[in-house]
Write a protein that binds this DNA or RNA. Structure first.
Length: 325
DNA sequence: AACCTATTCAACCGCCCAAAA
DNA sequence: ATTTTGGGCGGTTGAATAGGT
């Protein structure tokens, strides 16, 4: 049996809200509250659907809402929580005072997804693409693996090329310096010519084949910080502790441009030392926020949310902020 | 200056679920 | 027990804007 529409579609205005409408709605709610959304537009003198009023109020007019840019801490929180609960935007937004599920969802879809992809991390599973490929490869016969690698190269070629060959004028100078460890293949960066691009592709292929052959390998040139319990102050969680979800640690340092080129800690969580207990703490906190009844619901991203043993590619912080052209 | 493309984000849609009738 | 209703949620759309050619 279908539902009757929540309002007469013919008689309601749609689209952008005008300041006058906002005023009407705000002042009505200030006086009468939000008890019955169906009656609110009628009583407030608005030619709007009740649902539309509710949305306008909850997503925009509510006085406790924060407008403007997401902070680095907020972004970290979103990514951490997303790796645990998936696209449960309302749940994630509940951890970010002043942010709505719509805000969080939009920010994820327009910014964070791309950032993660640019880091070589699958935004759905929060695992590195290389590991996903390796996981798939374990189910295939060797000849199919070769095809898989070729197909994967096709899929990720542009992003990887960008990451590996992006022009960074000052990068060459930094090569003699100390801070940034090299890109995946290491070595001096030279603005790419055709031959360099070919070399890059060779490096990508090599990386893929290594990942596929040795799923647990560590990426070249940088020993992963297996001790690395970088702490992050996770809003809503009483103590500061190393947050590691889906096997990663998104460290305390900034995801954004603040500070001295800081970036998410890419320290690897080995699964033995920093996973279980912290996973439990984080997960417990989130579960506490869930409704009793939603608790049993499937986690949308599925299955193995606390899987560990994941490795991130080592990518300079600039690239984290400007992942893909 | 004009046009085209990409990005952002407010708003809408349709489904789900719990509470009320 | 069944139906109706209201509210919440996640996915999607499209207008506005920014940036590039």
């Amino acid at each position: 049996m279908g539902r009757i529409p929540c309002c007469e579609k013919d008689n309601v205005k749609r689209g952008q809200w005008t300041p006058e409408e906002d005023n009407k709605l705000s002042s009505y709610i200030a006086q009468h509250g939000t008890r019955n959304w169906r009656l609110i537009p009628k009583n407030a003198g608005l030619q709007r659907c009740g649902k539309s009023c509710r949305l306008r109020w909850t997503n925009y007019l509510r006085p406790d809402l924060k407008h403007g840019q997401f902070t680095d801490a907020e972004e970290q929180t979103i990514v951490q929580l997303h790796s645990v609960v998936g696209n449960r935007w309302s749940l994630i937004a509940a951890q970010l005072p002043g942010r709505t599920d719509n805000d969080v969802k939009n920010h994820w879809n327009t910014k964070l997804k791309k950032k993660l992809s640019g880091m070589g991390i699958d935004p759905v599973t929060h695992k590195p693409f290389s590991h996903l490929m390796a996981e798939i490869a374990t189910t295939l016969a060797p000849p199919q693996v070769a095809h898989l690698a070729e197909a994967a190269l096709g899929c990720f070629k542009d992003e990887m090329l960008h990451l590996l060959t992006k022009k960074r004028i000052d990068f060459q100078h930094q090569q003699s310096g100390t801070t940034q460890s090299g890109n995946m293949g290491g070595g001096a960066y030279v603005p790419h010519k055709h031959d360099d691009k070919d070399n890059t592709m060779e490096k990508i292929k090599l990386g893929f084949s290594r990942a596929i052959q040795e799923p647990d390998m560590q990426p070249p040139n940088k020993p992963w910080d297996t001790t690395g319990a970088t702490s992050v102050n996770f809003p809503g969680v009483s103590s500061t502790f190393p947050v590691s979800v889906s096997g990663y640690q998104y460290g305390s340092s900034s995801f954004g441009n603040e500070g001295e080129g800081s970036q998410w800690s890419q320290s690897m969580c080995t699964g033995s030392t920093c996973t279980a207990e912290h996973h439990i703490q984080l997960h417990k906190k989130i579960e506490d926020d869930m409704d009793e009844d939603t608790r049993g619901k499937d986690m949308r991203n599925g299955s193995d949310i606390f899987s560990s043993d994941c490795v991130l590619w080592d990518i300079p912080s600039d690239d984290l902020m400007n992942p893909t052209v």
